[in-house]
Design a protein around this nucleic acid. Structure first.
Length: 805
DNA sequence: CATCGTACTTAGAAGCTGACCA
DNA sequence: TGGTCAGCTTCTAAGTACGATG
């Protein structure tokens, strides 16, 4: 199917699934071994126990506190001091804190208290040695040597003991396991094997110089040459050489329904324009927005402009939108006409490769649903017309025809320094743009995703030094430097967002640099209580123990200010990032979030995975995922039916327990030679041996336990959103490596039942798998459904996760 | 340097779909 | 045979980052 179409390079074919073109070049060659080849070989690393601590001791520390830490060879001894310091483990922090603070903030419930304690000891004060800090140079404090590869370790240290040992450990460990594929240039084997897969076809790239062979089949379309591997990678540079797409699709025009609203009880005639906006409001009746005063006020102001000053409708509260609402419900019931699929808009061809477009539909008009207390909530978001849209397309590509007769695009550009295919100004906030770009499964996005994780992983090699630097600066004379130090510390330890400045016409939320005095309370002797609204107006509440010097510095920053003043009055994100860049090229505040999330995942998986069946292992993964989500403060609102669901489960458990009683009863009777009682359902019960009863009892108990666990999990996760961290923060290579080490299927296959009640769980959902595939095979994700993950050629460093890299 | 403009990532919720169940 | 719910996908809001500007 699609294949053919694809061949021609036109994107119009529309079929989704088959992806035709595959990129041959792998962007990075570092690792290209086909997954399959590696998959089942077992890696030496299988043993979880081998955790090593690298610089990350720190990491461990915290975590370990919760979990059993593994002890290394002796190393540990030293760890107390040094280790902690470094490790900002967020987790720990959070946890600890949690307890305490929990009290007040209501909503935050989400963050559950971690069990363990806080790190109390974070004595982190780093050692003086720190001095090295001065810039990047210093960085090398500890590097781990990886076995074969090039990286050497240098442990410098004074503190060292910890480190040293670690290093040693690493060496030894590693040596023992040798990983052939040490990270740097692995030789890649040609991916041929994979290539063979029937479905993939490669576009031939023109003879670009660098490109290697693989020409294989030529597509007709070779007209879209593929750029040589200079894909979009980093930033700053050329993002594509050829770009072909079909523009965007517009929502259907409004069709007046003629249903009248009531004003003071009387039907009112509205023009189609007035009716359209009234309908937008009417259909929101069951949402929380509907009753929010600001939402109503903003809506009213905009609607009134359409009604005109002298319209008979003078007051929103006197309007009864019920007729429209009822009409809307009826419409919903009817089978709605299938909306246009937009096949032809779904694909773009970038450098000869067919790629999915992420959002080719122009946003329909509606009422703005801002999160939190957004000043513009309820305002009318106007319809976007072709004349609002700027397209970006290859110079030689045909310019998409404007789908609305008689209208035209605002502008057509040919800018290959950007990745967007089209944009328009957001009608709510004209200073912002809405971009149309490729989907997450595209090579472009995959490449930048990988770059992101590489940057985070690289931070591992510098974190010691960074921590030493900020620790030293906790007492800097210069306030500005002291604020940078403390802010960096908070970002490192708590995974806070940078905190850019915001306009007044946006919701009032903050990040690290924009924290207000009132958001941070000092709790003697050295705890800080945070309470603020972050991105999306999600509340962050956490009480954590901090370094005494940090505690003191925060006290100084707060002194003499009112609650609404900036805590870090001398700081903003550009200063902070400029400083971070001095320490490590390319480093910015957000990298710490990625780093913290991924290192936590890696450490937890290594420490917590035990022998057991797949389900038990998956629980470990979910637990780690949950920890990461908590660190990142990813919350979700409790579903409306949550309470009922829990109750239903509780009811079932009760039933099972009743059944258990019956079983036990019958066991007794069987032992005494009596026949079983009739079941509560009135059915006759077979007479069986006591052993058989015991077996049934055991099964019943397992069932009960499982259901209780499930209920507990559900309750625990009711406010925790796992998806965001999985998609954006956890390096998928860590997941893949763990799956391979522990023989856990990577994809979820909830349908595969091996026994009643027993599902085989994989680890990861479609999106995460798609991202993993992306690192090599950008197109496969869309066609994934037709082939199994394990046979997919994934070029990953699967046997080396962060701790070993 | 402070602002502004631009581009790209990260986020929670809404919406959809198909399996499963009373 | 409709109701539920898990698991996705889609949608679009809301962040980060950084270069240009004055």
């Amino acid at each position: 199917m699609a294949t053919e179409a694809a061949h021609d390079g036109h994107s119009d074919d529309g079929d989704d699934k088959p992806i035709v073109f595959k990129r041959s070049d792998n962007g990075d060659s570092e690792d290209d071994r086909p997954l399959s080849s590696i998959f089942f070989k077992n890696s030496p690393l299988d043993r979880p126990s081998e955790i090593i601590k690298d610089e990350s001791d720190d990491d461990e520390a915290p975590i370990s506190s919760r979990f059993r830490k593994k002890k290394g060879n002796g190393v540990s001894g030293s760890k107390q001091d040094s280790t902690d310091e470094n490790k900002p483990l967020v987790n720990k922090w959070q946890n600890g804190s949690t307890h305490e603070n929990e009290g007040p903030s209501p909503k935050v419930s989400g963050k559950r208290p971690l069990e363990k304690g806080s790190s109390a000891d974070q004595s982190s004060v780093k050692k003086p040695k720190v001095s090295s800090s001065s810039t990047s140079v210093a960085m090398k404090s500890l590097k781990i040597v990886k076995q074969g590869d090039k990286r050497k370790v240098e442990v410098d240290h004074e503190d060292d003991d910890d480190d040293v040992p670690i290093a040693k450990r690493m060496n030894s460990d590693s040596s023992k396991y040798k990983t052939p594929s040490a990270k740097p240039k692995v030789v890649k084997q040609s991916s041929t094997s994979s290539a063979t897969k029937s479905k993939m076809k490669r576009v031939v790239s023109p003879p670009s110089k660098t490109r290697s062979k693989k020409s294989k089949k030529l597509m007709n379309e070779s007209k879209f040459a593929k750029s040589s591997k200079t894909l979009p990678t980093g930033d700053g540079k050329k993002k594509w050489t050829t770009l072909v797409h079909n523009g965007v699709i517009f929502p259907p025009l409004y069709k007046p329904h003629g249903v009248q609203i009531l004003y003071k009880g009387k039907p009112v005639n509205l023009t189609p324009e007035q009716e359209e906006v009234a309908t937008m409001f009417a259909v929101m009746r069951e949402t929380d927005f509907y009753n929010k005063p600001l939402f109503r006020e903003n809506f009213w102001n905009d609607w009134r402009k359409l009604l005109g000053k002298n319209h008979e409708i003078q007051k929103l509260d006197d309007c009864d939108f019920t007729p429209i609402y009822d009409w809307h419900l009826e419409e919903k019931k009817k089978k709605k006409a299938p909306r246009e699929k937009g096949e032809k808009y779904m694909w773009a061809v970038v450098d000869g490769v067919k790629e999915k477009v992420g959002n080719f539909r122009v946003e329909p008009p509606g009422l703005f649903r801002g999160r939190g207390e957004h000043p513009k909530t309820g305002k009318l978001k106007k319809r976007i017309h072709p004349c609002d849209i700027t397209l970006n397309i290859g110079k030689d590509a045909p310019i998409p025809e404007c789908p609305i007769p008689g209208e035209r695009w605002k502008e057509v550009k040919h800018d290959n320094m950007v990745t967007w295919l089209a944009f328009w100004n957001d009608p709510i906030n004209p200073k912002r743009f809405k971009y149309v770009s490729l989907s997450a499964s595209s090579s472009q996005k995959g490449q930048s995703d990988k770059n992101k994780y590489e940057k985070a992983r690289n931070l591992k090699d510098h974190i010691e030094n960074i921590r030493a630097t900020y620790t030293k600066n906790f007492t800097a004379k210069d306030v500005s430097n002291r604020q940078i130090a403390v802010a960096t510390y908070l970002i490192d330890k708590l995974a806070l967002r940078a905190g850019n400045e915001k306009d007044d016409d946006e919701a009032d939320t903050v990040g690290c640099c924009t924290l207000k005095v009132g958001n941070v309370e000092c709790v003697p002797p050295n705890k800080l209580k945070f309470d603020f609204l972050g991105k999306d107006s999600i509340q962050y509440v956490n009480t954590v123990e901090v370094e005494p010097l940090v505690y003191k510095a925060i006290g100084q920053f707060r002194a003499g200010k009112s609650n609404s003043d900036d805590l870090f009055d001398e700081l903003d994100t550009s200063k902070l990032n400029a400083h971070l860049k001095e320490l490590v090229p390319g480093l910015t505040a957000k990298v710490f979030r990625t780093y913290n999330a991924s290192i936590t995942l890696d450490v937890m998986l290594r420490q917590e995975t035990r022998e057991g069946d797949v389900n038990q292992k998956v629980v470990v993964y979910q637990q780690a995922n949950k920890e990461v989500a908590i660190i990142c403060n990813h919350q979700r609102t409790v579903s409306k039916s949550h309470g009922a669901q829990i109750q239903r489960l509780a009811g079932k458990i009760e039933e099972l327990k009743e059944g258990l009683k019956e079983l036990k009863n019958n066991l007794e009777r069987a032992i005494k030679g009596k026949s079983p009682l009739e079941g509560s359902d009135g059915k006759k019960t077979r007479n069986i041996t006591p052993e058989a009863w015991e077996k049934k009892i055991a099964q019943q108990m397992m069932k009960i336990e499982k259901m209780e666990r499930d209920m507990q999990t559900k309750e625990d996760l009711k406010t925790v959103a796992l998806g965001t961290s999985k998609i954006n923060y956890m390096d998928p290579r860590i997941t893949v490596a763990w799956c391979k080490r522990h023989e856990v299927p990577i994809e979820k296959r909830s349908k595969a039942k091996i026994a009643p009640d027993q599902k085989i769980w994989g680890l990861v959902d479609t999106d995460h798998c798609a991202r993993i595939r992306l690192y090599d095979d950008p197109l496969s994700s869309s066609s994934s459904s037709s082939r199994s993950f394990n046979s997919n050629p994934i070029y990953l460093i699967w046997d080396q996760t962060w701790l070993f890299l």
